[in-house]
């Protein structure tokens, strides 16, 4: 029993450390990936403008959703 418990404890420690080390490695790989995968200039320009457009529609949508939520809360109180 005692021995089993200490074994379980060791597995807990090694397991948690391995998970963290592995995902930290992946984190570094992602940083490399990001540098490696930067798109050509023209691409970023168009994606930026489309991002800007999306933000404005996002805001409109957000306003609509907030209004709907308020209306719902008002009706259901």
């Amino acid at each position: 029993m005692q021995q089993q418990l200490s074994e379980a404890f060791t597995i807990m420690l090694t397991g948690m450390i391995t998970v963290f080390v592995f995902l930290t490695l992946l984190l570094m790989a992602m940083a490399l990936l990001r540098r490696f995968a930067i798109q050509p200039q023209t691409d970023t320009a168009t994606s930026q403008s489309s991002a800007a457009r999306e933000t404005s529609t996002d805001n409109q949508r957000l306003a609509a959703i907030t209004a709907a939520v308020h209306a719902y809360r008002r009706d259901h109180e």
């Binding site: 807990m12 397991g15 948690m16 998970v19 963290f20 995902l23 984190l27 992602m30 990001r34």
Partner: peptide
């Protein structure tokens, strides 16, 4: 990418339950 660490921390539930 840093949110990867949150996915790692939540796995403590697994290893604590093993114990």
């Amino acid at each position: 990418p840093r949110t990867l660490l949150l996915g790692a921390a939540a796995q403590f539930g697994i290893f604590a339950t093993l114990f």
